[in-house]
Simulated scan of single mutants.
Amino acid sequence: MARPPRFDTDQILDAAVRLAASAGPGGVTMSAVAQAIGAPSGSMYHRFAGRTALLAEVWLRTVERFQEGYLAGLHGDADPRTAARGAARHVVAWSRARPEEAALLLHGAAEFGRADWSEEHTRRADSGNERVYAAIGSLAEALGVADDRGRDRITLALIDLPLSVVRRHLRAGGPLPPHAEDLAEECAAALLTT
């Protein structure tokens, strides 16, 4: 009978998140992750075909976890303005609860080697992004927004501004201020009322 693996995939990806948060995507190598969890380097190749697959999986697991809560927020209330404010708050609250994962996402998929990802990894990334933009599009419709300027305003309110609240503090290595969720929500509400 084969012995169960000593390290599961989540333990490996957790170590990769920590490395990415502290050293950026360049710090995520097969040997660095193996060393971080005390595993032989060769055991990494039993889980991942190579560094590209590892980078894809660490990015995708992180972004999919974020998107799950974000989409729940967008769909969480019948009133589209309340749902929008909740989604803006989610960006900050999620980042506060998971600063290492949020720091990883600040790099972007391209820095995690997206150009070299497998077709399956690329499909997963595209599918998640399509779900987010479809939900934002549905919210725009519910708000009666039909023009490009209005859709850009909603994207600014629900994606760009909440990320800017997070980005400044995470890049400086400091904690998010206690009022950060309120700022994201207030900005979203202001943009959605004009």
Rank of each mutant, 00 (worst) to 15 (best):
R3Y: 12
R6G: 14
R6C: 12
T9C: 09
D10T: 11
D14T: 14
A15G: 04
A16R: 03
V17Y: 03
V17N: 01
A21L: 02
A23R: 12
P25C: 05
G26E: 14
G27N: 01
G27W: 01
G27L: 01
V28R: 05
A34Y: 08
A36M: 04
P40E: 10
P40V: 15
S41C: 15
G42S: 14
R47A: 12
F48N: 11
A49L: 09
R51F: 12
A53E: 11
E57V: 11
W59V: 09
W59Q: 10
T62C: 06
V63S: 11
E64C: 04
F66W: 11
G69T: 05
L74F: 02
A78E: 07
A78Y: 03
D79W: 02
P80A: 04
T82A: 09
A84H: 00
G86T: 07
A87S: 06
A88C: 04
A88S: 03
A88T: 02
V91Y: 03
R96H: 14
A97G: 01
A97V: 11
E101K: 05
L106C: 07
G108P: 08
G108V: 07
G108R: 07
A110D: 14
A115D: 12
S118K: 08
A125N: 13
D126I: 03
D126S: 10
G128T: 08
N129V: 12
G137E: 08
A142Q: 07
V145T: 09
R149N: 14
G150S: 05
R151E: 10
R151Y: 06
T155R: 15
L156G: 09
A157E: 00
I159Q: 13
L161T: 12
S164L: 05
R167T: 15
H169F: 14
R171H: 15
G173F: 08
P175Y: 06
L176F: 12
P178C: 05
H179M: 13
A184G: 06
E185M: 00
A190N: 06
